[in-house]
């Protein structure tokens, strides 16, 4: 059945749970090399790729679940001949200059797909769009010191933001912060570090902290003027008003995940905290942890304090011969923060 669907995607039942997503690519838009690279990525992600020819007749496989990547003329042709076709499923002249562009386009195709049919998109270091999913962005539980370390801010700054009503962490015996708080403060700090002559408005902090996530977002951006913007594949729009934005110096929030320095503070990469340490809001309440495991950097550092490497291997014999020193170092910084 799977092979049949691959060969004849038009035969899929509209009411069923399609496992494959048909995607039409018009090759006249793109160079042969770009087309091939895009097609390979789409197929790897579980899509079916077809070429849409010219003329007024549409092939049988062209249907309401198709996503089209094409030129403006083709867009006009589709909308005139197939008036019921959803406009948001037509992606016109995407920019495909680097790996990030391909990743963004895949995310855009995925968000345009209807129903339960979705692509398998691997999260790479250059594609963090999965973080904007409401089921991810709103997760995380951090103590104040951890936020200070991850956002490269002082604890007093964090408390000051709370006092001014910019942040509203939960208070459950102790103060518990969310991943969105970390992103909000870190973005503000990053803008200060990269635009030292500008006065960075704190307006972005509550907007990013209270942002509920957006599954269709392929990029989130911020400006020193206090704007937070979203790109759902059709350009930047103000997150709060929805108004399209042109000619603003926008910093992608993705970029703030990279390491940076602000004064004496050094912010590690947020998601790839060190070579063998990573962070994801859905894993161990968002704590930095040893890559591909659920062992936190903090736990490794605690055991190191107790009895060095011997204590670590006693607790986790599976880590024998594994490189964990950088993760221990991250844990030590978290404990000290």
């Amino acid at each position: 059945m799977l092979l049949y669907e691959q060969r004849w995607p038009g035969a899929r039942s509209a009411s069923g749970n399609p496992r494959l997503a048909p995607v039409a690519v018009l090759d006249k838009t793109l160079t042969a090399c770009t087309l091939l690279r895009l097609a390979v990525r789409l197929v790897d992600a579980g899509a079916v790729v077809r070429q849409l020819g010219g003329g007024n007749l549409f092939p049988n496989w062209f249907g309401p679940q198709t996503v089209v990547i094409c030129r403006p003329q083709t867009r006009s042709r589709i909308l005139s001949k197939q008036p019921g076709f959803a406009e948001r499923q037509i992606i016109v002249d995407p920019r495909l200059e680097n790996e990030k562009d391909y990743a963004l386009l895949l995310r855009q195709v995925d968000s345009a797909l209807q129903g339960r049919s979705h692509l398998r998109i691997a999260t790479s270091e250059s594609d963090h769009s999965i973080l904007w999913d409401p089921e991810v962005y709103t997760l995380g539980a951090y103590r104040t010191g951890e936020v200070a370390f991850l956002a490269s801010a002082s604890k007093s700054s964090l408390y000051n933001f709370v006092k001014r009503g910019l942040l509203q962490p939960r208070r459950i015996g102790e103060t518990v912060w969310a991943f969105s708080d970390v992103v909000a403060v870190r973005t503000w700090q990053y803008l200060k570090a990269t635009q030292p002559k500008e006065r960075i408005k704190t307006d972005i902090i509550p907007i990013l902290a209270q942002f509920a996530g957006d599954r269709d977002a392929v990029r989130i951006g911020a400006t020193s003027f206090g704007d937070v913007l979203v790109d759902r594949g059709d350009g930047w729009a103000d997150l709060q008003t929805g108004n399209l934005v042109l000619d603003l110096p926008i910093t992608e929030v993705d970029d703030t995940f990279r390491p940076f320095e602000l004064g004496k503070r050094k912010a590690p990469h947020l998601l790839h905290t060190s070579k063998h340490t990573e962070l994801h809001p859905a894993i161990i309440h968002g704590a930095p942890h040893l890559k591909d495991s659920r062992i936190t950097a903090r736990a490794l550092a605690q055991l190191h304090i107790r009895g060095g490497e011997k204590s670590i291997l006693s607790a986790y014999p599976e880590l024998k011969d594994m490189e964990i020193r950088d993760t221990i170092s991250i844990g030590q910084q978290l404990i000290a923060a």
Binding site: G140, A141, H285
Partner: peptide, 11 residues
């Protein structure tokens, strides 16, 4: 889980 904050993961 280790650590009470584990139970504070939303949801």
């Amino acid at each position: 889980f280790l650590d009470r904050i584990s139970l504070e993961q939303p949801g």
